[in-house]
Structures are given as C-alpha cells and as structure tokens.
Amino acid sequence: MSLMAKAPGASVARLWAALEMVPEFHWLRAPEVGAAMVRGRQGATGAPFNLGEMTITRCSLQLESGAVGHGYVQGRDKDKARVVALVDALMQGDMAARVRAGMLEPLAAEMDAAKEARAAKAAATKVDFFTMVRGED
C-alpha cells in the first residue's frame, strides 16, 4: 500500500489495465477525497507542529471472496484509490503472485529507477574542495 500510495497514477492505471483483471466487489466505503494534516518536529527532533495539509483519497471494498481491501493514496485520484484497494484485497488471495509480478514489482522498479536518477543528479552537484594554499609556512 505504501508503494502504491506514492506511485504515479498513470503507471498504476497502465499496469492495472495490463493485468486484465475485473474482480467483482462492493464498496464498504466509496472513494472520498479529504486531507491529512502533515506534522513536522521543531528543530527536526523536538515537539511536533502542524505543517499543513495534503490531499488524500481513500476507499474500502470487499471482493466476492470476502477479502477486504483498503486504499489510501496521495492526491485526488479516485480511480487510483480503487485500484490500490483491489490490489490490497487480491494480495490476500490466490491471485497474489500474479498481482505482485504484474503490479508491485514493476512499480517498485520504476520508482527505484526514478529515485536513483534524481540521486545521481544530486551527487553530480556535490562540491569537491581543493586546497589552494596552506598558511603554515
């Protein structure tokens, strides 16, 4: 769920479509858009304070099999929340291996690659200091 919450909506939609799964389900809680108050800590380690809110979308559903899935995602994409909840529920049944291979693994690889690329660009801007003159003489 953590992985999918942060994933780009377009990637989730593309991988889900490729899985060609249409599980029957009913809503326990239809997708709703809301906010979460993000907290920080004063001085990074001290008492918490309220930094500001972020939009999130959540939903809960139940498959025919009885498995319950919850979806919590950043932003306002209700369709992504539905797919996340479906994946959460399917991971509890015999489809788990197929969903892991078709959705979670490629998504993790895609996000790792994006993160790596950014970290590489940051590393290229790291300063190497050269000592020009030493003042001991």
Partner: peptide
Amino acid sequence: DADLLRGGFTNAP
C-alpha cells in the same frame, strides 16, 4: 471484522 465495515452511509454527502 468485515461485517463491521458495512453499515456506513452509501452516499455520504
């Protein structure tokens, strides 16, 4: 319990 996850508003707004 999944049963307890039922029974909310169906059309909340």
